[in-house]
Design a protein around this nucleic acid. Sequence first.
DNA 1: TGCGCAATTGCCCCAAGGGGCAATAATTGG
DNA 2: CCAATTATTGCCCCTTGGGGCAATTGCGCA
Lengths: 226, 226
Amino acid sequence: MTTPTASRRPITVQEQEFAERCARGRVVVIDDDAEILAALAALLDLEGYACETYGSALTYLQVLNYNRPYFSGPSCVLCDVKMPELDGLELQSRLTELDDAPLLLMSGASGAQEAASAFRAGALDFLVKPIDADTLLIAVAKALATSTARQTQRGRQAELALRIATLTDRERDIARRVAQGQTNPAIAEQLGIALRTVKLHRQRALEKVGASGTADLVRIADEGNL
Amino acid sequence: MTTPTASRRPITVQEQEFAERCARGRVVVIDDDAEILAALAALLDLEGYACETYGSALTYLQVLNYNRPYFSGPSCVLCDVKMPELDGLELQSRLTELDDAPLLLMSGASGAQEAASAFRAGALDFLVKPIDADTLLIAVAKALATSTARQTQRGRQAELALRIATLTDRERDIARRVAQGQTNPAIAEQLGIALRTVKLHRQRALEKVGASGTADLVRIADEGNL
DNA sequence: TGCGCAATTGCCCCAAGGGGCAATAATTGG
DNA sequence: CCAATTATTGCCCCTTGGGGCAATTGCGCA
């Protein structure tokens, strides 16, 4: 751990505001039309969101690949469907792998088929240009809410997975059986080991996963795919 | 219980086939165009689904109101959006109350806006006329799968709710606390009652909800909103 | 080859869970 | 007012769960 030699200056007003925007939500806007891009960004900025703009989906994906330690707050992607290299649907699938940001697709005067495809592909909403400001903001708000929900969910999953990973095979096995409702003596018999041993592993497992009791363990086992 | 005096005849071939179709899935088709209605019904029949047709959404809703003990197998509704009295979106909301059948909306050459609205309103898919047979069948299959999933979920919920309903207030209260991981002595102290009493209620609660042990109770409590 | 970790086990002790038996209140629908 | 239901409690007994202490094995890794 090398501490940066310089810079322990006070936090600037700009940084303060930026932080607040990030907490409110980040919106990634992708459109090959610079004007639209600017207009959308302006609107979103005005609403207090942190806004990033890209001229093509590819550009964004590249940035995503480098910048892996992704954004910690809620975020969503607002993207035009008819892109040259990579269309919205393609982006959706790639996005699912890299980030779990909800996708809002938009398009100028397109048919119902396109919209339906977008939804089938997992887009959260489909906005038709010219986009009404209110409609956009509602959609964005919903997308960010979805993002928050996903992150919460994933966060819990990940946390539990981490804890469970610290268990030894034996401990995991016994924890599973306990969560299934088996008693210590029963487990001991099934595994052909001493009761005392089962107790030991059970105890260790409980403290390793941070369960305060058996009830807790059951929930952790269920939620954490033990 | 009055047993029907007559009819204990063998099951006919027609009934046999009908039963099979029902098990495969029921599709309710609603469209004001009789030709389309017939065509869709023919296709669905051919695929082995049990198919009902209605000329308007209102008609179907009326039938639904009378025929409350609804269909037991998977089912979905395939409905045209531009109806005179009741449009697809309206139907969606009413449908949610009465039945939990997934809704597939269809429309002739409409815009992306309509499709987007349909999805926002909770439609499972949006099909554009003329409808491709494969597309239709895929959508129907997906809808029926969704229906099955919902029914399974609701079924379990309902079953647990029934069991929980048999608990007395005291038993429910204590069951809740047990599910939270509190020990009998702790509960006894908090409620200001004797340990023996807590044990008794706990025991009763366990057998009433059909839990084989504490682990089971925790799951039942979580899934059944105890 | 010695150390650290994981798995095991025996002994002992105490707290908590599960239940049988019997009895007392309190509430409530007939 | 009687009977059924629900709530309570005391006593006693046995099984489980939770842990301290100490000792023994194997097994990779430095």
